[in-house]
Design a protein around this nucleic acid. Structure first.
Length: 766
DNA sequence: TCAATCCGGGG
DNA sequence: GTGTACGGATTGA
């Protein structure tokens, strides 16, 4: 097959209908579709119809319909057509004037056949259907946003300021709103009896500004549930929908996941869904904005719990804060939602579902099903229970302190192995999966090149979006019975080749005289001999790359002065610039007390610099500080999240007492489930609430032990047993101790396991 | 070791 | 009243 080099015309990728400007679609089971399109500043609503459809393995559940089920008649009440394909597959396409009626007839038939009440298609193997909007988009071949750039649609951001987090006990006193056409406003309710008018005010702004897209950070998790909770109490009916379609704002339960909110004609998207994909240390708005440099000049920061009281004394400050929130959300959305926006041009799904949909089930599978529907081809049947899925290999070769550390990794390993090994689902007889993998990769490279040249258009978002989908290919194969085309055997062929590739890499590197440290799925850390230059490091990587199969590339990924290898996926790196990077729970656990984390950073830095007396000094200072009571309580305290409410704990208390809740009782503090409290061990009093962070009445013995057993042990692998004992001893040096200046850091090889099993992990290649 | 569960984040 | 599915860390058996 050959492809035209122009971007965006492949029907399997973009759908077979090029209608431009679609900004929102609403559809129902009766085959009615509302399609909002934007051309420049003018918006049109088109009413369309479609035949709701359902793939089926056989027709036995519809026998009771008799002649009401017509063959090949797309105007009949119920119709069926036979699909190309074969035995054991979903070889019939059922369609109906009313998709809901069709489902009910199937359920009626299935209930009669099985003798039990079947209430959902989910309990029934042998069918595949989707929700109305997806059904419309797949059947029509349309997608969102063709010919539109990110600011083509009207994007509006709003943010609530409330007196607390619970709508049962708190209220809304301010709403900041802005849009990308120059509108900005702060709505306020100075008194409680103005809150209903405030909510109405927000809906008036929505009507007047008429946005296509509504954005905020955690809008599904906070703003909309809170707004709904208040509206119910105030007797206000929420309507976010556009005129001409069903009114309202509704909660959508997606499987076991958190609820999301939707309306007709506007896309409600949450920046937090996109941010969570990025695996940043915090997904909070302020933290992420600072990280990305999006925070506006003169940003006001207010602690959540103090916003309402600040509003009383400094309303102007809170107004500024709230406006900066929506400005920040706008900038964040532009950055993190661009890939979803680009994907919406390809996948037959509404934009608002893409930021929280998984890339495999949420994007790849709909594209596959659309292609089969278009080709009138049968879908694969239910998967037989397959073999267990095997993950990538993780091997620790050496532990301790190693110098001159280099990381090499196989570029996009799993996608490369899939494409070059032609590994696709055996059930995908049309070859759509590999076509999508190939074509997405090719287009991605073109967009990447265009982005680098600075061509006009959102090429970077496009290449990012394509990367997401390509990288989900492996996960999709391994998704097993959940996915229509899942093929665990194929996924295992990918990981088997991955392990072989990693083995080629580690053997090739070891043959060239380096010391292997840790290999994980698609990358290797190793240490090079003294005297090697960076060019030598890159040369061995090139040499080993030449040993790999065509299309699989080993790349240089970084170099560091030293590494403390502690356990698989737990290590510390010291950069040539002196920067310390700690990885893995052993070093970064969030519960870790501040004094211990500070000690660990200082001690590990010294250790990696080969400065053992410095390690000792760090330990001595930390132990001294903690045992002599020099630290403030805040430095030894840790944050605990309360999972149970006061009532729940009172009930379970006779069975098992828990220190945190007992401390709350003693302190006479009320709490709710989900609250976070800061606690510490007080001398002679056990676990207590941290009342005064600056006080110094903590249990010094306890925290001395934590320093030794909880933190210092992370240094153990980098020292001899004798050296570790001396660095962490609690007495003065003895007569027979080796002088500290003579102590060296050490490393040792980790013996290969002889039980034939790799130290396995299941991390996925990028 | 593996599966079930929790959690994020919002004022 | 819908054929839908986050990802990582932690905990429990």
């Amino acid at each position: 097959m050959t492809f035209s080099p122009d971007l965006g015309t492949d029907a399997q990728l973009f759908g077979h209908d090029a209608t431009p400007g679609i900004v929102s679609v609403h559809a129902d089971h009766r085959g009615r579709a509302w399609v909002w399109r934007r051309v420049g500043e003018s918006l049109t609503l088109e009413r369309d119809t479609f035949r709701p459809w359902l793939f089926a393995a056989d027709l036995r559940d519809l026998e009771h319909l008799g002649s009401r089920l017509a063959w090949n008649d797309d105007s009949a009440e119920f119709a069926v057509r036979s699909l190309r394909g074969g035995e054991g597959r979903l070889r019939y396409l059922l369609t109906a004037r009313d998709g809901q009626a069709l489902r009910q007839e199937v359920l009626r038939g299935a209930s009669k056949r099985s003798g039990r009440r079947v209430t959902g298609l989910r309990d029934l193997p042998g069918y595949h259907g989707v929700q109305p909007v997806e059904g419309y988009l797949m059947a029509s071949g349309r997608t969102y946003f063709k010919g539109l750039e990110f600011d083509g649609p009207v994007r509006l951001q709003f943010d609530l300021e409330t007196t607390g987090l619970d709508p049962a006990t708190s209220r809304i006193f301010m709403i900041a709103v802005r849009d990308n056409r120059g509108f900005e406003a702060v709505l306020e309710a100075r008194r409680a009896n103005e809150e209903a008018a405030l909510v109405e005010g927000l809906m008036r702004v929505l009507r007047e500004r008429d946005p296509d897209i509504i954005e905020n950070h955690n809008i599904h998790g906070f703003d909309l549930p809170f707004l709904q909770g208040r509206a119910e109490r105030l007797g206000v009916t929420l309507n976010f929908s556009r005129p001409g379609a069903p009114p309202g704002l509704w909660r959508v339960l997606d499987g076991g996941r958190d609820a999301h909110w939707a309306c007709a004609g506007r896309e409600i998207v949450d920046t937090i869904d996109a941010v969570r994909r990025l695996n940043l240390p915090s997904a909070g708005l302020k933290a992420v904005s600072q990280l990305f440099g999006l925070a506006p000049e003169g940003r006001v920061y207010l602690e959540g719990a103090k916003i309402a009281q600040t509003y009383v004394s400094q309303p102007a400050l809170v107004r500024r804060y709230a406006l900066q929130d929506v400005q920040e959300v706008e900038a964040l959305a532009r950055r993190v939602l661009a890939p979803s926006f680009a994907l919406a041009r390809m996948a037959p799904r509404p934009y608002h579902r893409l930021p929280y949909a998984g890339t495999a089930m949420g994007m790849l599978e709909p594209m596959l099903v659309r292609a089969y529907l278009r080709a009138a081809h049968a879908l694969p049947g239910p998967q037989p229970p397959g073999e267990a899925h095997q993950g990538g290999a993780v091997t620790l070769f050496a532990e301790g302190v190693l110098r001159r550390v280099v990381k090499a990794d196989v570029a996009s390993m799993y996608p490369s192995l899939i494409r070059h090994g032609r590994i696709g689902p055996v059930s995908d007889t049309l070859g759509v999966f590999l076509h999508l993998m190939d074509h997405l990769t090719r287009l991605r490279l073109e967009h990447k090149a265009a982005a680098r040249r600075g061509d006009p258009g959102e090429h970077d978002a496009m290449q990012n979006a394509m990367k997401l989908v390509v990288n989900s290919g492996y996960g999709y194969l391994g998704a097993g019975r959940m996915s229509v085309f899942g093929d665990v055997q194929a996924a295992n062929r990918v990981t088997t080749r991955g392990r072989e590739t990693l083995r080629l890499v580690t053997d090739g590197l070891a043959d060239r005289g380096v010391t292997l440290i840790e290999a994980d799925t698609d990358g290797v850390y190793f240490s090079v001999p003294e005297g090697w230059s960076e060019e030598d490091e890159r040369r061995v990587i090139r040499e080993v790359d030449a040993l790999l199969p065509d299309g699989v590339t080993l790349e240089f990924d970084g170099r560091w002065a030293a590494m403390l290898s502690h356990e698989t996926k737990n290590y510390a790196l010291l950069g040539y610039d002196g920067q310390l990077d700690l990885r893995g729970a052993a070093f970064t656990s969030s519960r870790g007390e501040a004094y211990g984390r500070a000690f660990l950073r200082r001690a590990v830095t010294c250790l990696l610099q080969g400065d053992v007396p410095g390690v000792r000094a760090a330990f001595e200072d930390a132990l001294d500080d903690v045992t002599r009571g020099h630290l403030r309580n805040a430095e030894v305290a840790s944050r605990v999240r309360l999972t149970r409410s006061e009532d729940e704990y009172r009930q379970s208390r006779p069975g098992r007492q828990e220190a945190v809740y007992e401390a709350l009782f003693r302190a006479g503090r009320a709490w709710q489930a989900g609250d976070r409290v800061i606690v510490y061990q007080r001398a002679g009093a056990g676990l207590c609430m941290l009342d005064d962070p600056d006080d110094r009445d903590y249990d010094a013995r306890h925290y001395g032990q934590v320093l030794l057993n909880g933190f210092a042990t992370r240094l153990r692998k980098g020292l001899t047993a004798d050296g570790y004992a001396q660095v962490t001893r609690q007495r003065q040096p003895g007569l027979f101790d080796t002088p500290l200046t003579d102590l060296r850091t050490v490393w040792q090889p980790v013996p290969a396991r002889t039980d034939g099993r790799a130290r396995s992990g299941s991390s996925q290649a990028e």
